[in-house]
């Protein structure tokens, strides 16, 4: 890595040997607990990654716990997965039509929960992230966002998928505008205008999908503001391709063990390409008054929507 002449507001200080010590023990503990340790494993990894990430003069602090993630998972398992599986099983016994109906209702539920979970994941992470003793959060529980998500995602796909960039930007903006850090609300003005051309090209020539994906991420983050701070994301298409190729080589070269480094590599990638401009007034940055939910991103975990 080369030092830029002008230092970025975000600095990553981690090293992969330290991360490996955490990740390998996590892997072993997860295996011998039949997967149950993974909630605590995730927490340990986040504690490390957050603590190695500096913003201006101070590192972040992750205060989420494995127990919270575990409770989130249990809630989803008992409220949704297990009852639905039982219902589906007995429906298949009665007749295929009943099973089909249960299946479709289940899919609609999943659709709703994916939207809800995408919002809840952000809210949970912000409410567990401290910087200078101040955290983020939101009082919006996101139940309405789950509905908006269903509607806008569907609208985005209807005209041959053409409105997809519009739906993605709208939903991103909506999610962030519900969130705050300290006393300040996030503002998000990502516009599909700047990515729509590339999106059309990806219909004609498939590799433009990658260009679109890279642009989309830049557009989304470039549109974010927090009080006097503006954010930017600098990863180009080639940066992304490089990241993915090395990911694949690492995973193949280590016969899969390298998978445990992927969270580290991607976090590092995001932080190295994340920029912030503007100023922070420490006196005016007071504690968030938002409610803290008691459980973690169990929804997202259960539906495996994948993290950024």
């Amino acid at each position: 890595m080369t030092e830029d002449t002008k230092k970025s507001a975000f600095q990553f200080h981690g090293n992969w040997v330290d991360f490996a010590k955490i990740a390998l023990v996590n892997l072993l503990l997860t295996i011998i607990t039949l997967g149950f340790y993974r909630f605590w494993a995730t927490t340990r990894e986040r504690e490390y990654l957050w603590s190695q990430t500096q913003f201006i003069d101070e590192r972040f602090e992750w205060v989420g716990t494995g127990k919270e993630l575990f409770i989130g998972f249990i809630i989803i398992a008992f409220l949704f997965l297990i009852p639905f599986s039982l219902l589906y099983f007995f429906a298949t016994i009665i007749n295929p039509l009943a099973a089909g109906i249960v299946y479709i209702i289940g899919l609609l539920f999943v659709f709703y929960f994916v939207g809800l979970a995408k919002y809840r994941m952000l809210r949970y992470r912000l409410s567990r992230t401290y910087w200078h003793g101040i955290r983020g959060g939101s009082d919006d529980k996101g139940f309405r966002f789950g509905l908006t998500y269903m509607i806008k995602t569907t609208l985005g796909f209807l005209p041959l998928g053409l409105a997809n960039p519009w739906a993605t930007c709208e939903l991103w903006n909506e999610r962030w505008e519900k969130l705050s850090f300290g006393p300040n609300d996030f503002q998000s003005h990502a516009s599909y205008n700047s990515v729509f051309g590339t999106y059309l090209l990806s219909y004609i020539f498939f590799p433009f999908t990658w260009v679109y994906q890279a642009r989309l991420r830049r557009t989304l983050i470039d549109g974010l503001r927090l009080e006097k701070l503006e954010f930017a994301f600098t990863a180009s298409t080639f940066d992304w391709i490089g990241l993915i190729i090395v990911d694949v080589l690492i995973v193949l070269g280590t016969l899969g063990i390298g998978l445990i480094f992927i969270p580290y590599r991607h976090w590092q990638f995001y932080i190295n390409h994340l920029e912030a401009y503007g100023e922070v007034n420490l006196d005016a940055l007071t504690q968030s008054q938002t409610a803290k939910e008691k459980h973690g991103e169990g929804l997202l975990d259960a539906f495996d929507v994948g993290a950024i």
Partner: peptide, 20 residues
């Protein structure tokens, strides 16, 4: 056994008739 398997595997078996 089948019920247990479908629970462990998430239960969302694509094949409606398959379970039975």
């Amino acid at each position: 056994r089948q019920l247990g398997l479908s629970l462990v595997l998430g239960g969302l078996n694509e094949n409606v008739g398959g379970v039975l």
